Amino acid sequence: MKLVKNIELGDPSSNKQNFIDLKLKLLCCRYWLLDLWDCHDMVFPFWRLYWNKNKGGQLIHHENTYDMDPDYLYIIPPFTSFSSRFTKKHIYNSGIHVSGRQFNSNYDEKDYEENYLIHFFIHFNLGIPFDNVYPGILKIELTDYLKNRLTYLTERLKIENKDFKLTFNLKLQAFIKESLTSIGPELWKTINIDDRVLKVIRFIEINIEKKLSNPDLASLTNMAPNSFGRLFKQEMTITLHRFIQNRKIAKACDIFEHTNKTIEDVAFNLGFSDRYHFSRVFKLVTGLTPANYRSGKYT
């Protein structure tokens, strides 16, 4: 038997195909009973997918209020400023206040529908450039496929919420991807951004721990800093400086989620002059201090 070497990647066709590389990274997936969900002006560097089995939840984005319907999913892109509440127990008008507990197989959902918000949520990232789409709250109608997947995922989360088997992981990823297919094409404009901007974005991602200046980044494209700054703002609807801040804080959140590094270490590793500068930028981007973020008191 001879090893075939002449056919690139085993494809016998000469017709080249171009695929979009989606790097889905799961951060958390939980099924909770919430009795308080007063969260104001939250901004996080990851995607959020919400579904409530019963009514009473609200999401607020700018002047728009969404009464959460059990027949719909709600998807929130990274760096979207929004608020949430459980209308039956709305107490606070500022800050982030959440209380509840993990659903388990000992609970009968019917016993809790009246006084609790039955809340399913996923946090995830998609990678560059998809984590830089336009902010907003997206309402996605549940199809029969998504309903069946939700039933499976929520029932499994009642039994196991820590060490997930391969089947659960695959079905969870399929659920997220199927949900994303319902998003309109205008949201994905960033995949067609100017090659010069994309080159700089990739450089930023690889060198996120360094101090990155506008002139140095503009030089990668052989453009003057002001000209490149205008191009970047035009393509990404955000200034280059704010984009760098957002990506550094996104990286900081990832480090906090998966390591025990101190706030000082994270600040130093991401090129901030000191902890205080890092904390100011972190709160500017997320609305939380690094210490509050690490405490995990949000959903």
Rank of each mutant, 00 (worst) to 15 (best):
K5N: 14
K5S: 14
N6P: 01
L9P: 12
L9I: 07
G10D: 03
S13I: 10
S14I: 12
N15Y: 09
K16M: 09
Q17H: 11
N18R: 05
F19W: 05
F19C: 11
K23M: 05
K23T: 04
K25C: 10
L27P: 13
C28P: 01
R30W: 08
Y31F: 15
H40L: 06
F44H: 13
F46Y: 13
F46Q: 02
L49M: 14
W51G: 05
W51L: 13
N52P: 00
K53G: 06
G56T: 02
L59Y: 12
I60G: 05
H62P: 04
E63T: 13
E63I: 10
T65M: 09
M68R: 08
L73R: 01
P78E: 01
F79E: 00
F79M: 04
F82C: 04
S84W: 04
K89L: 07
N93P: 06
S94W: 04
I96W: 02
V98A: 09
S99G: 06
G100T: 02
K110N: 15
E114I: 06
L117D: 01
F121L: 11
H123K: 12
H123I: 06
N125T: 12
L126R: 06
D131E: 06
D131S: 04
V133P: 01
G136M: 10
L138P: 00
E141V: 09
T143Y: 01
N148R: 11
R149N: 14
T151N: 13
L153G: 03
E155Q: 10
E155V: 05
K158M: 12
K158E: 11
T167P: 09
T167D: 15
T167I: 07
N169W: 15
K171W: 03
L172V: 07
A174V: 09
A174Q: 07
F175R: 03
I176V: 12
K177T: 14
K177F: 15
S179E: 15
S182D: 10
I183W: 03
I183E: 01
E186I: 13
T190S: 11
I191H: 03
N192W: 07
D195C: 12
L198M: 10
V200H: 03
F203H: 09
I208V: 08
E209A: 09
P215A: 02
D216K: 11
L217P: 06
S219D: 05
P225D: 07
P225L: 14
S227E: 09
S227H: 15
K233W: 11
Q234E: 12
Q234M: 08
T237Y: 08
H241G: 14
F243C: 07
K251Q: 15
I255T: 13
F256K: 13
I263N: 08
E264T: 13
N269Y: 03
N269L: 02
N269G: 05
G271Q: 10
F272M: 02
D274Y: 03
R275G: 04
H277A: 14
L284P: 06
T286S: 14
G287P: 00
L288M: 15
R294S: 08
S295T: 13
G296K: 02
K297R: 14
Y298K: 04
T299I: 14
